[in-house]
Nucleic acid binder design. Structure first.
Length: 280
DNA sequence: AGCGGGACCTGTGGGC
DNA sequence: TGCCCACAGGTCCCGC
């Protein structure tokens, strides 16, 4: 499920394919995949992709118009949610059963190619936005800082309230880009129970948690993310971080550190796996 | 205010 | 073999 490392991998693998490409046509096969605040995708025509990057779990395409005008989109945002996929294909490639949008692109050398947005479970979304429009989007506006850029002091300052630590980590307003996998993995690595009240952590525990979070995210990015079932990068390759999971998906199996059986519980409706012995 | 849980979706896999 | 149902999970939304 695309979380921060998977979105980062998609952005990195997409970049060399679509950087400097110009939108020539767009076919939106599932109108509901367009964010309600989005400009019509026809507004993308003739715009050039200047950069491809990631914010939280979203893939961002920065756009430039050959003839600048008010009201043109400056960014095309993709949120992959659970099953979204973004990949390139040669011109006139066949659409899949779950293809939601097809973008026809012209490369610098004049040849054409296609950018596909596939999404089995249709939770993903596309958003063509001006900077103003983007700022009107509550989710965007309230997004917390990037975990790989935050300082320990800032992180500690954002961890407030008595709710379970895991719930806070998944709250995109607290910190952006963390999903179920990396929340569980970071909590295990830091030796903290997902059930700990958020405001019960000492300064040192806060610092350890951030350190573990960053280590887990960096390690996963270096392995091109985790592929559970749907996730692929823009080149169709799977990530390999799933082979390094210490707890995610391992409920009922022995802890890799102490050998005790890992607990599987639900916190805030999410499956949560942890070691009651190693995590306090 | 803050929290819990259902809804949104479809494919997969376990149990019978 | 086939049916049923739980489950996967990011985010929104409703209600307590």
């Amino acid at each position: 499920m695309p979380e921060l490392p998977e979105a980062e991998t998609v952005a990195r693998t997409l970049y060399p394919h679509i950087h400097k490409c110009v939108f020539k046509n767009v076919e939106l096969l599932r109108p509901a995949s367009l964010h309600p605040l989005s400009l019509p995708l026809s507004s993308l025509i003739n715009m050039r992709i200047e950069n491809v990057w990631r914010r939280a779990k979203m893939i961002m395409l920065d756009l430039v118009s050959p003839s600048p005008a008010v009201g043109l989109p400056s960014t095309l945002v993709f949120h992959l949610r659970m099953t979204g996929r973004l990949f390139t294909a040669s011109a006139n490639s066949e659409q899949g059963k779950h293809t939601r949008c097809v973008f026809e692109l012209e490369k610098e050398d004049g040849t054409s190619m296609q950018l596909f947005f596939d999404d089995t479970r249709t939770f993903g979304m596309i958003f063509a936005a001006t900077q103003t429009e983007l700022e009107k989007w509550d989710f965007w506006k309230n997004l917390g800082p990037e975990p790989l850029e935050i300082t320990a002091a800032e992180f500690a300052g954002r961890l407030r309230g008595k709710r379970p630590l895991k719930t806070s980590l998944l709250d995109q307003k607290v910190i952006a880009g963390i999903g179920n996998i990396y929340a569980d993995e970071a909590l295990f690595a830091s030796g903290l129970s997902p059930l700990r009240p958020t405001d019960s952590l000492s300064e040192m525990e806060n610092a350890e948690l951030l350190c573990s979070l960053q280590n887990v995210l960096r390690l996963s990015i270096s392995q091109c993310g985790s592929s559970i079932r749907d996730y692929r990068d823009a080149d169709g390759n799977i990530g390999t971080f799933q082979n390094s999971f210490a707890v995610y998906g391992r409920g009922g199996q022995p802890c890799k550190k102490c050998g005790n059986i890992l607990e599987k519980i639900r916190i805030g409706g999410r499956a949560t796996v942890y070691c009651a012995h190693c995590q306090r």
